[in-house]
């Protein structure tokens, strides 16, 4: 259990002349929640896609849960999962049907029981019988979260996990994720624009800009280092290139 849940070295993605991700080194320690922050086009989604095996890197290595992701991704895909508001579940299937299909894709023996369990945990049991396309965007986000938890993953990659959720539900989801990580020892990588969310959820933060990691550390340490009150102010400093780092740090 000593190795990191994710360890990427020199990870690079190039599309022709465009360098989307530029030789980043990234670690997600076991049992921790790490925030991946950056503006639009910073390379967060590209990085997550490479970590999931959906995108082949131009260069670099990725080790996920001890396996070489580029050579043996099928050994590890069943132990991880992800959720993104930009990728849908089939709209014409009911929530139960969608979750059942994914439970079985992840090889669960008793998919019905697991679907009921996760639906109860995430608070979507009342609309298991409804078509996914008929749900509100907030409900769909919760269903996507339920799908990402269907196999009780050891590693969870979440892109904007509380997008479209009202503040109350978003807060509930954050508490749930904290409890899940603590209760199961799972590692979570969260890409988010919601700085408050990252401050509350994450023990470590990775700041990306134009495909590079420009800073990293615990949220409180970053705030102190930039001499700011909140992570949002740190984010704006980095995004606008106005950062004045504390010389002592």
């Amino acid at each position: 259990m000593s190795e990191a849940a994710i360890r990427a070295r020199g990870l690079t993605k190039r599309y022709g002349d465009i360098l989307a991700v530029d030789a980043i080194d990234l670690d997600v320690p076991r049992g921790e929640i790490v925030g991946l922050l950056g503006g639009n086009g910073a390379g967060k989604t590209t990085t997550i896609a490479m970590l999931l095996g959906l995108l082949i890197p131009s260069a670099g290595t990725i080790t996920v849960l001890g396996e070489d992701m580029l050579r043996h991704r099928y050994r590890v895909l069943g132990r991880m999962n992800f959720s993104s508001p930009y990728i849908d579940l089939p709209k014409r299937l009911t929530v139960r049907e969608n979750l059942t299909v994914y439970a079985e894709l992840y090889g669960l023996r008793n998919s019905r029981v697991q679907v009921e369990h996760v639906a109860g945990e995430i608070g979507i049991a009342d609309f298991l019988g409804r078509r996914t396309g008929e749900l509100s965007s907030g409900q769909r986000t919760r269903v996507a979260l339920a799908k990402s938890l269907i196999n009780a993953p050891e590693l969870l990659l979440l892109d904007e996990p509380t997008a479209s959720l009202d503040p109350d539900t978003a807060d509930w989801v954050r508490h749930y994720l904290l409890g899940y990580a603590k209760g199961t020892g799972a590692s979570i990588l969260v890409a988010s624009h919601n700085m408050l969310e990252v401050e509350r959820l994450c023990s470590q933060t990775i700041m990306m800009k134009q495909g590079r990691i420009v800073d990293r550390g615990p949220p409180a340490a970053l705030i102190a280092r930039y001499g700011r009150q909140t992570l949002e102010e740190v984010f704006l400093d980095i995004a606008r290139g106005t950062a004045k780092l504390d010389a002592a740090q």
């Binding site: 959906l54 069943g78 930009y86 990728i87 849908d88 089939p90 014409r92 994914y102 090889g107």
Partner: peptide
């Protein structure tokens, strides 16, 4: 096409499905 229309391809291939 159904998977394309429903933008489900990435979900499928982030799962262990070969």
């Amino acid at each position: 096409l159904e998977e394309m229309w429903s933008r489900n391809l990435a979900q499928l291939f982030a799962s262990p499905l070969r």
